[in-house]
Structures are given as C-alpha cells and as structure tokens.
Design a protein around this nucleic acid. Structure first.
Lengths: 258, 258
DNA sequence: CACGCCCGTTCACACATTCCGAACGCTTAT
DNA sequence: ATAAGCGTTCGGAATGTGTGAACGGGCGTG
C-alpha cells in the first residue's frame, strides 16, 4: 500500500501526520492531537514546538493552526510549472465566459492538484470561495473530470500504476470504483475528446474537463468547467457547447506554447 | 539564537533543512544535498524518499524539486485569514490605479509574508511575475515598507522580541541594521502615517506601505505600493499622493470589517 | 571497446534520539 | 474548595536514525 521503497523516516512521518491532522481539523490542541494519533502528549509537544519554530504551524492560545511558511514553497512549486502563467489567464476567461466555475489542474505523483480556480461573475453570490475545486485542493484522478481527462491521455501502464498506488475510493454513489469500468470510461473519453464528472466526487456537482498535451503526447494538465447541478444542464447540446469552448482555449494555449 | 524552548526534534529539522535546500537551489540532486548539508548520502536518501512519498518533494530524473503538496496547506493558511478575500480585491485595485506593484502583507511569527500581489496593466511588460514581492514570499520586517509600517503600529516590547529573534540583516547599503536607527524610523512612521522602503531590501526598488489595524489597535496586515526606482518618483508630492491612496483603501477596508 | 567515474542504492552496526509515562504547575469549571 | 483539564518538564529505556563501506548501473572518456 504505502511502500516507501527503502526505509521511511518515521519521525518525519510523525511530524507530517501532525500537520495533516491540524489541517483536517482546522486547528487542534495538543491533547486532541495526542488522542487522535495515539501518541504520548510529550511526544506531540516536542513535534509541535519544532514545527512552530520552523513556521509550519502557528500557536494561537492553546490551539495550533497551519502556518504561512507553506506559502513560499507552494508558490515556488506552482510557478515552476511553465503552464501556470498562461493557464491562469485562461481560467479567468473561461469562468467569465461560462458564468460557471473553471479551474486548471495538473497531475503530480498520481494525484490531481488544482493550480488555479475562478468563478464567473454571475454565480459569485452563492458560494464565493468555498468550492471543492478551490485552488490548492488535491483530488484523486478518477473522480474529477480533469483527472479522468488526464488519465485518458496517458499510457495504460501509467494509469495502472496510479490506480494501484491510490486505489479508487468512492465518495458518492456515482463514483467509478471498479477498474474495468474506469478503463471503459477512459475509452469513451478518448473517443469524444472530453471527460465528465456527474456527481462522482460530491453530490450536486457536475463538471466537464479536457486535457492539455505536449506535441509528443505527454499530458501536462487539464482544464475543467463545473458547477452545481442546477446550473450545469445535463443535455447534450450544453455539454457539447462547453466542451467546444474548452477545446478552443486548449488549442490556443497549446499553439502559444510550442 | 534558535531557542526551541523544550526539546527540538532533530530528525524533523533535518527533513526541513533538506526541503529548504531544495527550495533555495531550485532543484538539487542527492549528492549535492549531502555535500551541502554535510549529511551521509544514505541519510539524505531516506529523507528524500520519505518526503517524495508524502508529496512534499518530486523526483524528476535524479533531481528533486518542491512538490505540490505544499499547496493545500498554504491555501488553507492563507484563506484562514479573514482579511484575505477583501484585501485581495483591493490589491488588484491599487495595482490598476497606480500602474505599479501592490501587495498585501501579514506578520506571522515575526516575519512578513506576502499574501497577494498584483502589477498594474501599464507596467506588466517588464517583469511579469518576478518581483521580489510576489505572493508567497517571506521577508524580514525591518527592510520592507509593509513590515516597517506594521512594526510601527506594534507595542515596543513586541518589536524587541521580533528584532531579538530574527536580527536586522542587511541586504543593501540602505538597510537599517542598527536597533536605535530602527526605533527612530518607527517614530517617524507613526508621525506621518506611512512607511517607505528606499532601496533597503534590493537596489533599485522603492515602495510605500501602511498598516491595517483592528479597532482595538492590533496590527492585522499592511498594504504597499512599489516599483523600480525609475517608475517610483522620490519627490514628496508623488509619495504623499500614493500614501493618500493607501490610506483611503485601508479606511474603506477597516470600515467594512467591523 | 573497456575502463573509470559518479550517481543512487543497499546493508549491518552502534549510538544518539526519539518516545514514553509519571509527576508537576497552572487555569477553569464545578 | 476541589477536581478535572490543559500544557509542560524530566529521567529512563528501546527504538530507529545516522553512518560508512560496499554494490550496481549509466555515462562519458581514454
């Protein structure tokens, strides 16, 4: 499952587990963390102080939060991708044109990361910055439109690697959790040129995505457009229209790159 | 100097040092890192594999890079700040109005972090995303306009804490490196209501900053406007004009918050 | 074509370090 | 007044980290 290859450094893993726990609970106290991770309070104490000293956690009274020290590294990683700057602008353009949510997603280590996200003017009232696809979020490849679009453009061996590594966890009753079903779906996606996510990640959210590839066929990212089901019609005409829009933006982007 | 309080976790510190080294050298190989940090290759090997497994580093051939796993945490930390969303828009507005660079900076753990950055349309040709104040960067408080503006609004005891913890390293010949000079400067800033950075961080870069405070006087952030010296005039009229603009935006922001 | 260099990888060993649990001081609620 | 909860401190024990030497592969060079 989590085969590290050689010898995982357990102490580092413990520190990271603490950071993850703080992240997931959106702030936690020392005792909460010790209980949750089944570590001695004194051990947690030492780790937390070290992480605060390094700026990765911040202490506010007796609760710990994620620190801003992640920012320099994350911006470094994000902007290192040459696609980021051009894709960024297209995400904003797509959001405005469709009035829905748009994002740009890349794959790393078998997971999908949203590098940029925007929501169209007309829809901004509802949920301003709380979409699941907000920049910075991480997904499994098989349950979002962009992820499936990228999988469909990869060699089968790579797809199997990713599925073996991360599995196909289900989050709604529509999630594809069987490997054979996934491969069928990827075939369909290749045929029509775009992928859909019909309430496969969260209930009530639909999206359409398409991948960006380099001239030699390597996948380098994906765009998707989505929104709540009441705003994203399921009829084929609308879907095709959005897919067409995506396709145009992607062609333009690819043309400008090489 | 780096007093951790209780008992620092050395293994975690080692992992973090590796990440920092990868960040600073913008990609590094195992041997380079072992040399630079004077660690055994086998030790570095184990740490790197653990960090890759967790997604904080990525391996590309034989060189390691910063991984996208920092993104979810950094976005979490950034958006946890209630000022982020409203400040974000004002940064873009300020950039457009002045045609220069604008950013919003907050203090954490005695350091200044740029949460958002934008550059005005008219100046975008030159250096699009390469400014020192790009979102995500971290500074010392004493050598940027926003940092000094925040220091000036803090109780003296806090300023001393920060200076003791991080020192006053100089990066240009204009940097304030003496504690007494810094306190004089803070007095001046309090008198006129805004801070300046006249090539104190990097040569050829000037900026003007002012702090945002809560009704009870706590500093919660700062905005600044800056650019290369050839675009940022030194005459008092221009400076006052920019300070006035900052002041208006900050008043409007504070009014909307409480 | 073969040699040697440099890279990452593996392994067994020794000791430094982490981890633990119990005890302490503090604040808050009962 | 008392007790329960919190974070903190500390000594001791064993685990796990760090080390260095040896291995194997890839690449450029002689």
């Amino acid at each position: 499952m989590t085969d590290d290859g050689p010898r995982p450094v357990k102490t580092t893993k413990a520190s990271i587990a603490l950071v993850r726990a703080v992240h997931d609970s959106d702030g936690a106290t020392l005792s909460e963390l010790a209980d949750r991770l089944e570590m001695a309070k004194s051990t947690v104490h030492n780790h937390l102080h070290t992480l605060v000293d390094e700026g990765f956690l911040v202490r506010d009274g007796d609760t710990y939060h994620i620190g801003l020290q992640f920012l320099p590294f994350s911006e470094h990683a994000r902007t290192r991708n040459p696609l980021y700057a051009p894709a960024r602008r297209r995400v904003y353009a797509l959001a405005e044109q469709t009035g829905n949510e748009a994002d740009f997603i890349v794959e790393e280590n078998g997971r999908a990361y949203s590098l940029e996200y925007a929501i169209g003017e007309s829809s901004r009232g509802g949920l301003p910055e709380s979409s699941p696809f907000r920049a910075g979020n991480r997904f499994h490849m098989h349950n979002c439109a962009s992820g499936k679009a990228m999988l469909a453009s990869m060699p089968e061996s790579r797809v199997r690697e990713i599925v073996d590594r991360w599995g196909l966890p289900g989050t709604t009753e529509h999630t594809i959790t069987a490997e054979s079903a996934l491969f069928d779906e990827l075939e369909t996606i290749r045929d029509r040129g775009y992928a859909t996510n019909d309430e496969e990640l969260i209930d009530g959210y639909r999206s359409i995505g398409a991948s960006v590839t380099s001239p030699d066929g390597d996948v380098i990212g994906a765009f998707s457009i989505g929104g709540p089901t009441y705003r994203m019609a399921v009829d084929e005409a609308t879907t095709e229209e959005i897919a067409q829009l995506l396709s145009e933006e992607i062609d333009a982007l690819e043309a400008g790159l090489f």
